[in-house]
Each structure stands twice: as structure tokens, then as C-alpha cells.
Design a protein around this nucleic acid. Sequence first.
DNA 1: TGCACCATGTCAGCATCCTGACATACGCTG
DNA 2: CAGCGTATGTCAGGATGCTGACATGGTGCA
Lengths: 160, 160
Amino acid sequence: MVQQEMLGPVENAVGYVLKEAAVALRTAMDAVLRPLQLTVPQYACLELLGQRPGLSNAELARGTFVTRQSMNVVLHGLEERGLVIRPATAARGRELPAELTPAGRDQLRAASSAVSAVQKRMCTGLSPQRQQELLETLAACARNLSPGADTPVPGPPRTP
Amino acid sequence: MVQQEMLGPVENAVGYVLKEAAVALRTAMDAVLRPLQLTVPQYACLELLGQRPGLSNAELARGTFVTRQSMNVVLHGLEERGLVIRPATAARGRELPAELTPAGRDQLRAASSAVSAVQKRMCTGLSPQRQQELLETLAACARNLSPGADTPVPGPPRTP
DNA sequence: TGCACCATGTCAGCATCCTGACATACGCTG
DNA sequence: CAGCGTATGTCAGGATGCTGACATGGTGCA
């Protein structure tokens, strides 16, 4: 195969590099989470539950960008492994608020540490200001594309 | 180690907003490509072929972040619809260089225009400098996470 | 020349995730 | 109070993508 390093315009498209970075991050996270017997959605679920205990299945699904059905199987898997608990019956409505077990908190600690290392590696060479800028810019992009984007959100304020 | 390396609230994690933006972009692209009877991978394949004709299946797969197998079915689908052509037999090695048909070029033009509009909408409120910065920062992040990241790439030059 | 090595295309099997649909439970409004 | 809309959990069904494996063809090295 001829390795013609012809830099095509694709590499200059925002969407392309966005996908590229997302795939790279996903792959790296998957690699460090595998020794912990966790998939990325499972980790996302644990992380979200750790920060906001009592979230329902649907809320967790929205927070991790998957459907309720997918989150349901994730939750059942974590439940069988004793990492999270859910009441057998709903106290209010149909919501079954999930919470971490002590074992779940332990797993989360290890996983969070590993993922944090990956993020740090990803941001190698970026100044804190630049990282913050990236954060705000990406958030603005997501808002601009959200369905109810009738009122386009202006970019974050420039750092003085 | 007493002080665990913990992440802040999910909304402040780079990985979270990165995923959020990627999902939003994917959803928006899917919405505008559906009227054209194109999926996102199919569009990516057409776009790549339009810019670099003669790419093989494996090269297209790498360029669109999927496996050779997935790109194979995408390619076959586009071939059946008369949007791309591939030689029946390999002239060199086993590579089957694909190219766009005139119909494929037409489809690509329409799709590319639609996707470009989406990207523009995503970047609403972002100055050109900020967009360029986003591009370079994301590229640096992807490089930092790529498997052969033995030599971490320094961030792009600071904007004065 | 022979041989290990890598890349490509392809097949089968499996995992993951989503779309569509349904029954239930709450809130609101007339 | 009845009815409508909304949200939740759950059950198939299907689409999509990946891992594992194989045969083939080119490449580099002894």
C-alpha cells in the first residue's frame, strides 16, 4: 500500500476530528476498564450513580446517551454483580431509584481513577486554560445541535 | 494514596462533553441524511471517496473508524445502488480500488451540502479562531490517545 | 530461492444498541 | 370525577457493528 501522506480536507472538518477524538477516547477507556470487568456504559452508569444517587433507569439512560432499554440491561448486569441495588417495587410512580452498594463504590473508585488517567493522557500538552476552553466549546457545540436549538446559544465568553 | 484521583461532576469532564457533542452531531447528521437515503457511514464513505478516489476497502474502513467488514457491507450497498464501482478483480494484490459513479458524485454533492450546513449550525457563535482552535485541540487529543503515543504530541501553538 | 511476516478481502457467529409497541402510573384540565 | 397527555419500565424484533478466523497475495530478510 502506498502511504501517500496527502492531507485531505476531511482531516480539516470539525466533525471528522470530533469523531476521531471520540473514538480514540472510547477505545482508550475500554482498554483500561477491561481489567476491571467493566464496559464503558457500565462505568458511565456507576459514575453517574456515584455523583447522583437515586437516579432512575430513564434518567441514567439520558445521562449516558443510550436508550432506556440499553440502560436496563446494564443495570441488571450491575445488579447481578452486586454493584448496584434497586428496590423491587416502586415507591412513587414506576421509577426504581438505583443506588451503589459498597462494592459498587469500590469498583467506581478504581474505575474513576483509571478513566481519569486516560483523560489526563488525552489532554497532554494542553494548558488548563485550553482544556477549559475545549470544555466550553464542546458544550456550546452540543447545545447548538440539540433538537430544541431554536435559540442558538452564543459561544462561551472569551477569556479576558 | 489518600487523595484519589477523582473526576469532578460529569458535566465538567472532557470525556463527557466530547461524547455529548459527538452524539449530537451524529444525530443531526443522521436527520439530514435520511431524506437522501444515506446513513452516516455511507456518507462518510462517499465523502472520502470523493476526495481520494481509488481507496481500497481497508483504507476506507480506517478513514471512517469502522472495521473492514462493516465497510464491506457499506460498500456493497452503495455498489448495488450504483453510487460506487469496484473492479471485479484486483489488479494489484487483493485491493479493489473503489470510485464514485456520476450518480454517486451527485448524491455526494447533496449530502455534503447538508452535512456542511449541520457543521455550520454546530459552530454557531464560534469565531473562526475558536473553530480552528477546536480543530487543533481535538486533533491533539486524538493523537495523544492513539496506540503509538509513545511520544506525546505537544499542543498546538498558542494563539497570541 | 525459501520463508516468515504483514495486509487484504471475506465468511460465520456473536454482542450491542436501537425502533416499535404495550401496560401502567402520575399530573393536569375541563 | 373523567379524560388526556406525559413518563416510566418492559417485551419482542431487527439493524448495525465487532471479534475471530481463514485463504490469498505482496514484502522483506536470510
